[in-house]
Write a protein that binds this DNA or RNA. Structure first.
Lengths: 208, 208
DNA sequence: CGACTTAGATAGCGAGCACTCACTTTTTAT
DNA sequence: ATAAAAAGTGAGTGCTCGCTATCTAAGTCG
């Protein structure tokens, strides 16, 4: 640690803010909303509480900033799926499996934790509202880019709603602390069945 | 208040315990887990904190007792659906709508709140585990009684998993404080589409 | 350099939390 | 009737929380 001791103020600022946001993500994902106290976040980030309250006027401001932070990362992860085929049930099932991985990721866990907390907190709900709308629109846009040529727009939104809501529901039901635990027989069967139902309802043009 | 002033000890006990359980349900459903403090529950129930801690050694014990309380009420509500037809897409959509109502009810909201809190609390998760298993088994059994003659057992569990997980996911996403708010266009479309996919995948015998 | 602004550290404050305890009231048993 | 037991009360206890005030360290600019 002999070099690069000198940083500009903007660099210092960005560094600690980034550390605080990342620490908030890991605290929310591992300890949950209630246990994500300012002290816990500061300990995780390796800074003092004074530093936190210099950059964020209140705990809620930190949480809202974290929500915006993870929202952008969510669309990135979704788009980084590439453009997988959805012609056969196997391919759709593979896509569902990948989506399940995304939904179970810490980033998405953070997002869910904030949404749940927002239900009982009016001002947090209001503060999270724009990010929520933006995220939904961007996810729908990404889905349209990937598969918009196969489904009418209304149906695409409906299928997306079915899939992500089911995966979110699964994430809430999966209380195992180990995120890579065996998905369970019925869960695998349910995903497989959903894939089959989708391809049967929207057969690809080649097979017609 | 001139009559019936005399109650046996068992009656008094049952009365206050019932009031505490009901108060816990409404507190969890309206204020959320974190705001369901012992003081809030006692105020809602109209008893003192001393009374609460006479019957429940700790806050967690009260919450676990409440979980058992609502679990039984959930199966009752599910079975009270009767035995609706599931031959046409319209009928399946109607069933999905009724299920949606059940999932959005305060009883189910309470259950979800406890499950979410259990994710970050090891001992609460362990204490809730038996009720969780029992509830899942009873729901599957009820579903088998209602529609077991139409689907193989494995498929029934898978369909049930898809439907209830999607509805739970919807309940988490629906942050509106008004539970009877307009379901939203895409939600209605998604439920309708899911109903159509189900009847297409499992056509009734008569239409074969 | 030296005045000035920004970033970060530390101690502490008031509020709310789960829980306890000494006490009163109501039911039960003799 | 009266003693014992159970139910219920409400003030108090220690602890953690979000947040603030005060201070030191570091970067900026004449």
């Amino acid at each position: 640690m002999t070099t690069a001791e000198r940083r500009t103020q903007a660099q210092r600022r960005e560094g600690t803010i980034g550390a605080l946001l990342d620490a908030t993500v890991t605290c929310l994902a591992t300890r949950g909303y209630a246990a994500t106290s300012t002290a816990a976040v500061c300990a995780e980030a390796g800074v003092s509480q004074g530093a936190l309250f210099r950059h964020f006027p209140t705990r809620q401001a930190l949480l809202v900033a974290t929500a915006d932070h993870v929202a952008t990362r969510q669309v990135e992860a979704f788009r980084s799926l590439g453009s997988p085929g959805v012609d056969s049930a196997d391919e759709v099932a593979a896509v569902l499996g990948h989506l399940r991985g995304l939904v179970l990721s810490p980033v998405n866990q953070t997002w869910r934790e904030l949404l749940v907390a927002a239900r009982a907190d009016d001002s947090l709900r209001a503060a999270l509202h724009p990010a929520r709308e933006s995220l939904q629109a961007q996810m729908l846009g990404a889905a349209a880019d990937l598969w918009g040529d196969r489904l009418p727009a209304d149906d695409l939104a409906a299928v997306l709603s079915i899939v992500v809501n089911m995966l979110d529901g699964l994430a809430f039901s999966a209380l195992d602390p180990d995120p890579t635990a065996a998905p369970g027989r019925t869960v695998e069967r349910a995903l497989r069945l959903l894939a089959e139902m989708i391809v049967r309802h929207y057969p690809s043009q080649e097979h017609r």
